[in-house]
Nucleic acid binder design. Structure first.
Lengths: 171, 171
DNA sequence: ATCTTACTAGTAAAATTTTACTATTTGCCT
DNA sequence: AGGCAAATAGTAAAATTTTACTAGTAAGAT
């Protein structure tokens, strides 16, 4: 929930937005860079409204159905500062789905394990190529996105290396 | 929930266990290797019981209060095989809390950003040292844990490198 | 002219997760 | 002997998240 607040406040800091726009931004633009999934935005937005962090105003553009424009309040700005600082200094052990399988590796036949690991590595290499392609197309003034991407690439690389050396021990 | 099932089934595959033991295992032994947090185990266990994946038997050891021993059923074994295979072949973009802050970096003063990033790197280096110490003490027959750990170390390293090069661009 | 897809706003209900408790027994400390 | 921590089992209620819908307009496709 804390991350959700940071997310919404950050998006609204960039300018007021209506719900659908927020949803689209999260799904399409943020998701590739920030693996934070949110299925429904209205509950958290309502909660933040209750807390006085965002305002909801009725706005009507063109002849579209009503739009409710959400915007950040001064209190929201304050909380944003607080949350982003906290987030900079918080280190969570990230969750990698593969770790669970590795933890249970002793319960998998070696032959099968090797096969699965090899298949995974193929997928990972494909992802790596996609990320590298993305990196080339990134806009020049978005330094921070480039950092996130190159971090991602390093991570995928690290997983490929780890799994490759694991395969060699499975004989 | 799917990960939870895999987790419980894997733990019970190793042998029947009672609730408290499962909880302790997750909190103390798995957590460092698998960043999966579970606050309450009974709801998922009950659900899995309903699905016929685990059995709950009353057992009494010594004079302790009643113990309910959970064990995996044949159906549970089957599902375990299925889930672990699926999990091997699933790649999720991991969530790194720092990515959100990086995404919003343009909203932070450069000077402040540099300070926060430097502080984070100090933390990360501390974690790196801890992980390396852990790696030395790991039991010799647990190859897979060693892999998870060295993967972790590579990840922390990757973050340190990314953030360091980011700091240099923030002038 | 009509059909489909995208844009917009949600809500109700179901499922899950988190929080905050209650209760009993044993073993250890003072 | 008395008290506290750890071992053991949860549950009830609150909070949150997910799922599955409803509804209407505009723009583009056939």
């Amino acid at each position: 929930m804390i991350e959700h607040e940071l997310l919404f406040l950050g998006l609204l800091k960039d300018g007021p937005k209506h719900g659908y726009e927020i949803k689209r931004l999260i799904e399409e633009e943020l998701f590739p860079f920030v693996g934070l999934k949110i299925k429904s935005i209205y509950y958290p937005l309502k909660k933040m409204e209750r807390l006085g962090l965002v305002n909801k105003d009725v706005g009507r553009e063109g002849k579209w159905p009503e739009k409710y424009i959400y915007s950040i309040t001064p209190k929201g700005e304050k909380i944003f500062e607080h949350l982003i600082t906290e987030n900079f200094l918080t280190i969570e052990r990230p969750y990698f789905n593969i770790d669970l399988s590795l933890y249970f590796l002793p319960f998998v036949e070696k032959k099968i394990a090797r096969r699965r690991l090899k298949a995974r590595i193929i997928f990972l290499k494909r992802i790596m190529r996609d990320l590298e392609a993305l990196e080339k197309n990134i806009k020049p003034n978005t330094q921070h996105l480039r950092i996130i991407l190159s971090h991602d690439i390093a991570l995928v690389n690290a997983e490929i290396n780890s799994l490759s050396s694991l395969i060699e021990t499975l004989i």
